[in-house]
Design a protein around this nucleic acid. Structure first.
Lengths: 217, 217
DNA sequence: TTAATAATTTAGGCAAATCTAAAAATATGT
DNA sequence: ACATATTTTTAGATTTGCCTAAATTATTAA
């Protein structure tokens, strides 16, 4: 698998979550920041390699092999993100680009030793689950902050919007993965939420509340 | 710089140590496991990028920019080798291939944080010096074991032959980077050497003695 | 000092991954 | 239903890095 092929597989995997009945050429091209004709070419190539099935004009669907491969790349990506944040002092918004490169280094020993070195993490710094060696994901019940209950204490486990603006906002307000927050008040007027964050209090807007995932503690 | 360009720069850098008056196309092609015509193509391209000067039929010489770039790639390679051996339990003979890939990830933050994480090592697992951020190497006076003095204690700091057979031999005899040895006896008959290694003693052949570098402690 | 030999470069091609432009298939609106 | 719009595919180019084969330059040896 070439670098380009791996990136396409990953993109198709992600798009399949949204478009269950096949990924359209246009959607794929947009995800890959390329043209539809390029996506068609690559889809054909991946179909020839039995990574997916493609019905012309209908869309692409990953085969088991293709899905397993995509999961493998995702596993690498997320493990490297953990490494970058936990060991190399990268912030949430800096990891993605570098991890995009690291994820393509194909060495089982490298990935599995890294996994062990990091203590077999099950979530990456954005709160996305890290598949294990066999490709199995651990799922945790995520609650979006907007639906949190007043008086309840939660742990921050992820974000929906991964834009660097949002991640920087969280950083500058001392909210990170693992941060413990308590919902103090929900303002019905504008749906803002007041949180207890350690010793201090903070009010976050509705758009923040919709993008931050929590888990009961 | 593309991956191929980086690899050529590195190869030319290494060959320049041997061929001070310009690297020949043939030598370069052999080092890169490719054909002379391919080497010519790439040398031309690198000359256009001002990474080297090339006099047709005479050879290539790195420019300051080219040499700095090569050193940068070497720095990355050696730092990743340290990481693989010290943190991910790779053995001497397993690191090279993976480091060949890791060295091409171009992120100053990544490399400098890795450097700090590893404690600013000055030597890689093969005993080769790691240039600092500015490209400066630290040199240590290396003594080859064959010239070691009876009764003197040394630290193992590197190898000449980096073949996986030799590295495996050392591993299986508990000799690694940093291992402390004392020369007990030099056998004039076959130039073998008896060493104290911790509590045990070991006799190594002349060929081993010629390939292991030491530093006085 | 030439003729043979070796090294290097040029010329022309190939595969991967992209592009633009045009053709073909599918969807949509009235 | 049928013309128009949209989506997708095809056709033909481009760039990078490599190849083979042929031409050119340099070296060596008789």
């Amino acid at each position: 698998m070439t670098l380009a092929e791996e990136n396409y597989l990953k993109a198709i995997y992600h798009l399949e979550q949204e478009f269950k009945n096949g990924v359209s050429t246009n959607a794929l091209a947009e995800e890959m920041n390329t043209k539809a004709s390029s996506a068609t070419d690559m889809v054909k190539k991946l179909a020839e390699k039995n990574m997916l099935t493609h019905i012309p004009y209908q869309g692409a669907t990953l085969s088991d092999a293709g899905r397993a491969y995509a999961v493998k790349v995702i596993r690498r990506h997320r493990l490297w993100e953990v490494f970058l944040v936990e060991k190399l002092n990268f912030s949430w918004d800096e990891v993605h680009e570098v991890a995009e490169h690291l994820e393509h280094i194909n060495s089982d020993k490298l990935v599995d030793e890294l996994d062990a070195f990091l203590g077999f993490p099950t979530y990456d710094p954005h709160g996305d689950p890290i598949p294990d060696k066999e490709g199995n994901f651990t799922y945790i019940e995520k609650i979006v902050l907007a639906k949190g209950e007043v008086g309840t204490t939660y742990k921050c486990i992820g974000v929906d919007d991964t834009s660097s603006e949002f991640l920087k906002y969280l950083d500058s307000n001392n909210i990170g993965l693992g941060t413990i927050v308590k919902v103090l008040h929900k303002e019905p007027f504008d749906n803002s939420i007041k949180l207890a964050l350690g010793d201090s209090e903070i009010v976050v807007s509705q758009s923040v509340a919709k993008n931050l995932y929590l888990k009961k503690v």
